[in-house]
Structures are given as C-alpha cells and as structure tokens.
Write a protein that binds this DNA or RNA. Sequence first.
DNA 1: CCGTTTCAGTGATACGGTTCAGTGAACCGC
DNA 2: GCGGTTCACTGAACCGTATCACTGAAACGG
Lengths: 328, 328
Amino acid sequence: MPRKRATIREVAQATGLSPAAVSYALRGLQVSEETMERVRAAAAELGYEADPIARALASGRTGMIGLLCGSLEDLWQQSLAVGISRGLREKDRYALILDAFGDPARERALAQQLRDQRVDGLIVQPIDPAAGFWAELCESVPLVAIGDSVAGTASEVVFDNRTGVTLALEHLRALGHRRIAVLTPTRASTPDRPADRHVTAEADRLGLDVELTTAPHGLAGATSAAHDLLTGDKPSAVFCFADSIAYGVYAAAQELGLSIPGDVSVMGYDDHPMSGLLTPGLTTVDWDIDGIVRAAVRLMSAAADGGTRRRVMQKPTLMERGSVARLS
Amino acid sequence: MPRKRATIREVAQATGLSPAAVSYALRGLQVSEETMERVRAAAAELGYEADPIARALASGRTGMIGLLCGSLEDLWQQSLAVGISRGLREKDRYALILDAFGDPARERALAQQLRDQRVDGLIVQPIDPAAGFWAELCESVPLVAIGDSVAGTASEVVFDNRTGVTLALEHLRALGHRRIAVLTPTRASTPDRPADRHVTAEADRLGLDVELTTAPHGLAGATSAAHDLLTGDKPSAVFCFADSIAYGVYAAAQELGLSIPGDVSVMGYDDHPMSGLLTPGLTTVDWDIDGIVRAAVRLMSAAADGGTRRRVMQKPTLMERGSVARLS
DNA sequence: CCGTTTCAGTGATACGGTTCAGTGAACCGC
DNA sequence: GCGGTTCACTGAACCGTATCACTGAAACGG
C-alpha cells in the first residue's frame, strides 16, 4: 500500500499558518522571507511534495506537453522525439509522446485526446497539415507545428521542403539521372502533401521522369516496397522521402544482388546518424535535427507561457556520400 | 481562449439526474440500461468529456505509466520505448517516457519524480539494479523491471544475460579469438552490473583475455571510444554490450581504414534492425524485442490492476552475420 | 496625526470528478 | 402480508491544491 503522503494542510498545521499561506510560501509568493524558511523546513520535515494532480486541477496547468509524431517507425522521427523530450525536461515539463502511425484520422483523434488530457501545449509533426481541425485546435491549446505549416495561429518550425527537394533532384540530375522513382511514406489515407507537390513541380522544371510510390517507414515494409520497385524495369535512381525508407532500398538491393550505386542510385531525406555508416554512405538531405529540436522547444515554451506566435524556417543542406553514381 | 467544457453537473441537469448517477452511467456501473442511454445521449449532445485531471484526483488513478529508460541514445532502447508506448496505448494508458542518460543518480531522481507525478505504474530498465530504492519504490507504485532483477516485489522481464554473454564469447572463441576488448555502456557512476560480472566470469572459464572499457551509446561518443581502442596494440575482436556501441566501432574502423572483420572482428548485443544492413552485417546477440515489449506491457497491466507479481525470463539467440572472422 | 499604501496572511470557495452510506420502491419466497 | 433483497438512484463528503477577496497592522507622506 502506498503510504499516505503529507498534504498542504498538515504543513499548515505544523507551522501554525493557513494552507493558503503555505501554498504561497512554497511557490515563493507574497510571504515574508522568514515564513518561507519555516514552511520549507516543515515541508522537508514532513516529506511534503505538492500533488501535481491536485495542483493541475486547481491551476489548470499540468506541466505536460503532448508530442504527436507522424510515425515513430521512422528512426529520424524517433530521434526528434527523444530530443524534444529531453529539451522539455530541461524546462521542467514532461512530454507525452504519441504515435499517429501515419494515419490522419488517428492523428486527429490523438490530438483531441491530448487536448482532453489537459496538456499545456501540443507539438505536432502533422501528417495532414491541410486538415481543418488544426485551426480549431489552436483555439484551445498552444500549438507548435513541425515540418509543414498548418492553418490557424500555431507557432511553426517549417521545413523548407521546396529547397530540400530541389537540392535532391538537382543533384540527381547533375549526375545524369533522368528516370527517378520517388518513395514517399505510406499514409493510411493520402492527404495532398505539399512535399509531394514540390517533387512533381521540380521534376517538371528539371525535365525529369519521376514516378511516385509509397512505402512504409518500417524496415520490413520499406524493404518489400523497394523490392517491388527494383524488380523489372527499374529506374536509375530512387529518391526516398525519409532515410528510413532508403534503408529499405539498401536491404532490397542486397536481397536482389544489386549494387548501390552501381546498379541503382539512392538518395535519402533527413540524415539520420546511421546513414553515414552504411556502405556506401547514403547521400541525403540534412536537416540539422538539433536546430529543429531547439526551435521546437523554444517556441513551445513561449507559446505555453502565453507568448506570441512565431515561425522559424529550417533550411536543408545536401549531404553527399556515396550512394549516387554519375551516369556516363 | 479555451472555451469552457461541459461538466458532469451540466449533464446531470440536462438529464434530471444527480451527478453521481451520471458518473456511474458513463462508466457503465449500477444504472439501468435506459438511463445509461439517456446519459450517453445528453453527454454527446453537450460534447461532454470527463476531465482526466479531476478524475485522477478523485479516483487516485491517472492512466499514465512511467517509462524510465536507461539511455535513449541507445537506438535499441528507443525501439523498446516506442514499442512499449504503443502497447500501453492499446490498453488505454499513456506512457510517460523519461531518459536517465545512463546516470544512476538521475535514474533515482526521475523514478521518484514519476511516482510523485502519480503514475499508475512504472516500467524501468534499471541502470543500477542493485540500488536500494527499488524495493522501497515497489511499496508505493507497481513496478516492472526490464533487463536485470531488482530487489523488492517488482514484476520482471529478466534478460538471461549469462546465456547472452556465453553465446557471444563462445562464438568468438570458437572462431579463434583469444584477446577480446569489451565495450560496455558508460555510466555516470559505475554500479557493479551483473552483466559485467558475467563477462569476466565467462572469460575466465573460456580462457579468454578480455579487457573492459566503457563507451557512450551515442554514435559520436562510441566512435571516439572505439577509435582509442583500435589504435595501437589492438585486440582481434571487440565485443560491444549494445549494438549502438558497435556502430561506433564500425565508424572508427572506417576512419582508421581498418576492415571489419579483416583487421578486427566485432560482436554486438541487442540486434537492432539496422545491424543487418551494415557491411558486413553485425554478428550480434538477438533479444526478441517484440516478445520483451509484449511481456512488459502484460506484466504492467497485471500489476497496475492489482495483480500479483510475475517474472518472465527472456532468452537470447546468436544472430550470426559477417562481422566476426575466423582466425587461422 | 490622519488618510493612504503596502505587506503578510486568512477564510472561503472553486476545480470536476468519485465514492460511500443511505433511501424508497419494486420484487421475492413463503 | 411480511421480512428481506435487490435495484436505481441521491446527497454529501472528499481528493489536495490554487486563488480571490478581504483584514489588521505596520509603514509612509505631508
């Protein structure tokens, strides 16, 4: 049995003060220096620790931030989540990490559940940034969107996917690739993603012949999707919209006895630490994950403290390794 | 401004019942079928959703499970955390994921913070299983330990590290390795870990010459530790007590122009999905992560519902790939 | 010396549910 | 027809804190 914890009333009794005074004292408000000391001492004596639940009920603040990830099968998103969770801990907040499994309907349901859980704020990497409920959600909880811009008054850490896509496709084109398969993450339903539009637009501009297919983030799923892609009339290069998916291409190539970049070139997107370790190293678009983490935490702190909306733009760089061949 | 939510009292008023009746009805207790329907309808009408905070205060249950990880820099532990988080979600619980950064002191502090947060249970992958406070913690919150056994009445998913170490070392010995460096995860302070003892014991038994060094889980840190190890008079094989650390050995070997397994053999421990993708594939000790996740979730559910303590033992298997050479 | 601030602290109420003891009515067997 | 159950529901207390409105005393300015 959990032993009963001391309450604020007991501390009040012990010090001969009112519960209100104790409440103030413990938060360093409105009381004399001397009283504060007395209260602190009594609290320590009794092993008193304010009950976060009761505190949350009374004050309306929980100290918890919801972190809603598009798909935690993606190793890069895992890193992002871990980083943000750490960053929030440093600001004395807890992160409640949830996974939408790439499903927009689930994303919506979880976002609302988190709000009902009374989180102080919500950090989201939206699967479907065009969905209508984001704007509405901003009304009831401070929101920070990572990746794509959403409607409403959310703060945002926006990825400049336009530039990212351009970097990738121009690099492929410069090395002589014309026929390129693009693997984008599978969604339960397929919202019209801005990033996808950039791909087709840029491909048109550069005169590339691209074909979009979807693949799951998980290694097994991505491998089988890539397997299908690489059998038969295969493209000269595969551009994966997440390093995790590119890993599947490596696995499939291995299974099929194809060499990278000899038989097929691979381009990633994210730059997960493991990408540099593969043979050959994965050429990919790097997104400075630490910068994103810091920005997200900063914007969330500001928003949760009633600050104003802000928006930062994240720029990508091309990380050239060895997975893209120059076509003769 | 968050619009005000409906309260149970408003639902009561709308249905002409007492708040108590509504409370029961919504949880399917003690009321007639017909009343339940009426209450459900009224609740839906008003958009009523029970406030989890108030509920937690009154009932003493939060629906939240603390998940305290040894070090989330370890990719395998990341996967484990994500898996457990998903598993708990399926049981309508939320996971509060925290990272001890490999620091026993921090582990202790976080465990207590989580208890004070009123989590319904705590899942821990203890850094220092021998620490005294685990037993005490069991008294106040249902506890599930993963990995090593802790004192007290916790449920446990214990890894048979003895067998794991034996598999690894016997394999290395069978292939002719005698001088082996062992890289164990860095701890802020170094508690006497059972796994480390197994290593020295087994090494003695097998007549191996082992040298223990520590390395961080993060790729950068592990790489530099491995770098030191591989310069100068290097061993014929490195046994890493986490695949994440082995990744650092791969990176260091690459920097130094050493070939794996030509110049040095590497053995991992965990079997992270990426391990099969490296060149050569990492020979490692596999721990059926899905089984561990399922067991942990099951034990936690049982413990949180007031069930009895249980203990399951997890068996490893050797996953032979190509990173260990046969010495002539 | 008086009117106004400031300070330190109080009492009451709010937060939004859960839960326990109790109540009247219907139902039961005999 | 009567004691005893069961059923469906009620009223009130309670969970442990925050916060608002207020008060007496001290400090202050002129």
